[in-house]
Simulated scan of single mutants.
Amino acid sequence: MDRRLFLIASGAAALSAGSAAAAAGPKLTVYKTASCGCCRGWVTAMARAGFAPTVVEVEDLSVEWRKRGVPDQLSSCHLADIGGYVTVGHVPPQDVRRLLKERPKALGLTVPGMPLGSPGMEHPSGKTEPYETLLLLPGGRTRVFARHA
């Protein structure tokens, strides 16, 4: 009888794991350097928000953002490809979800710099600073996509 219960429980666990994998959120490929800890924090925040990140470590991140048409002044410490868009820096998961839902004609989103309190840049005290997520338009133009306090 114990063996039978074990087999039933094992089968249920396998089905549950399969369902979780099938329910995984949008896939994103994150490009970062090996030494960046805040990038790991952003990847963790995205995974917790239901995204399925794959990390690719690169020597020179500028090669990646230039390939995608991101101007140097709008770059940051990591970037990700998701759903035909690029995200640069500490873009909040809810902004990425909105981007994928609305599908604007754009390159993607950026949060230039490393604002305190953005995903991956949390401070132990809870201190934050206001920042904007910018919509990256062709030709290096931008417009405000979201404001965060």
Rank of each mutant, 00 (worst) to 15 (best):
T87F: 02
T87D: 06
V88T: 05
G89R: 01
H90N: 12
H90Y: 12
H90T: 03
H90I: 06
V91I: 05
V91T: 03
P92S: 07
P92I: 06
P93K: 07
D95N: 04
D95C: 04
V96K: 00
V96I: 15
R97W: 09
R97D: 08
R98F: 02
R98A: 10
R98M: 08
L99G: 00
L99Y: 02
L100I: 12
L100K: 08
L100E: 10
R103F: 08
R103S: 06
R103T: 14
R103L: 06
K105A: 15
A106G: 13
A106N: 12
A106H: 14
L107R: 15
L107H: 05
L107F: 06
G108Y: 06
G108R: 13
G108A: 14
L109N: 01
T110C: 10
T110F: 00
V111Q: 10
V111G: 14
V111T: 14
P112L: 05
P112F: 00
P112G: 13
P112H: 06
G113D: 03
G113A: 10
M114E: 02
M114H: 09
M114C: 08
M114A: 07
P115V: 04
P115A: 06
L116Q: 14
L116I: 13
G117F: 10
S118P: 11
P119F: 07
P119R: 05
G120C: 10
G120Y: 01
G120A: 11
M121H: 07
M121G: 14
M121V: 14
M121Q: 11
E122S: 08
E122T: 11
E122I: 05
E122P: 08
E122N: 05
H123L: 03
H123R: 09
H123F: 01
S125F: 07
S125P: 04
G126I: 05
T128D: 04
T128H: 09
T128R: 14
T128C: 02
E129I: 14
E129V: 15
Y131F: 15
Y131S: 10
Y131G: 11
Y131Q: 04
E132D: 15
E132V: 01
T133P: 08
T133V: 15
L134V: 01
L134S: 02
L134C: 02
L135Q: 05
L136Q: 00
L137G: 05
L137V: 08
L137P: 03
P138D: 11
P138L: 12
P138R: 13
G139T: 13
G139R: 14
G139D: 10
G140F: 07
G140W: 03
G140K: 12
R141H: 12
R141P: 01
R141T: 00
R141A: 15
T142H: 10
R143F: 03
R143K: 15
V144G: 00
F145R: 04
A146Y: 04
A146P: 12
A146S: 15
R147T: 13
R147N: 02
